[in-house]
Design a protein around this nucleic acid. Sequence first.
DNA 1: TATGGAGGTTCCCGTCACAGGAAGGTCAAG
DNA 2: CTTGACCTTCCTGTGACGGGAACCTCCATA
Lengths: 133, 133
Amino acid sequence: MNIGDVSTRSGLPAKTIRYYEDIGLIKPLRSANGYRSFVAADLHKLAFLGRARALGFTIEDCRMLMALYHDESRASADVKHLAQEHLTKIEAKISDLQMMHDTLTELVECCAGDDRPNCPILSDLSGISSGMT
Amino acid sequence: MNIGDVSTRSGLPAKTIRYYEDIGLIKPLRSANGYRSFVAADLHKLAFLGRARALGFTIEDCRMLMALYHDESRASADVKHLAQEHLTKIEAKISDLQMMHDTLTELVECCAGDDRPNCPILSDLSGISSGMT
DNA sequence: TATGGAGGTTCCCGTCACAGGAAGGTCAAG
DNA sequence: CTTGACCTTCCTGTGACGGGAACCTCCATA
């Protein structure tokens, strides 16, 4: 299989696949013409990577997850630990975004959104200490 | 005021303040010795930027927000529109993260987390089509 | 007056996970 | 033989800074 087929089947852009080879996540063979030659195992790895990335794992997380996957003597605790740390980071991000969201929603609701210049959003950004009941 | 004072008062790292000058968000004067010389208006702008960034606005958003802030003839609708677009992006990110979170939580809960190799997290990543009742 | 340390300056590289694009080689069809 | 789709490598850009080198400046103290 050439990179185009693999791209189609895995859903990953060819650019991404080449990048994954660059950083050592996959090691496809080469044909006589210099083209990358992928086998089923490569496709499987790429699908694994695609799913792990879709869950938000970093590339380095993915590297470790793949290593664990190929390590018959792994402990599931190690995998779980990795996933839990990632989960914690996700929760922190959601929390940050949620706070931004709430603040922004409140400001947007207070803004007339007409052709007049008066704007509570800008007032807030400029440091008006309103808000308190 | 030198950059150190401004950094302390605004809460922004000196590196960030220099960066903001580089990209034209602020234009502090220079003292005879070459040091940046900040006045109250600069500090005010930096505080504005700090708050806008804390709400997740991009630098380019900040640039427009500052322009609107200094434009006496602005329409609050323009500000509101910017904020609403940003809000939409935040909501999309939260939604993405929430989906990752839910999937990961489910997988983590199914993982024994002991010293045995069997692991539903890895099974899922490797493409097991389990899940359905 | 020398000096030491805490400030300041510019400049360049690294981050993260690729995307875009240039310049060129390869292959199958017409 | 040409055309066009595919492949290759290599280089640059992204966003918003952080780290650090090499150097300059100021003030206080011995």
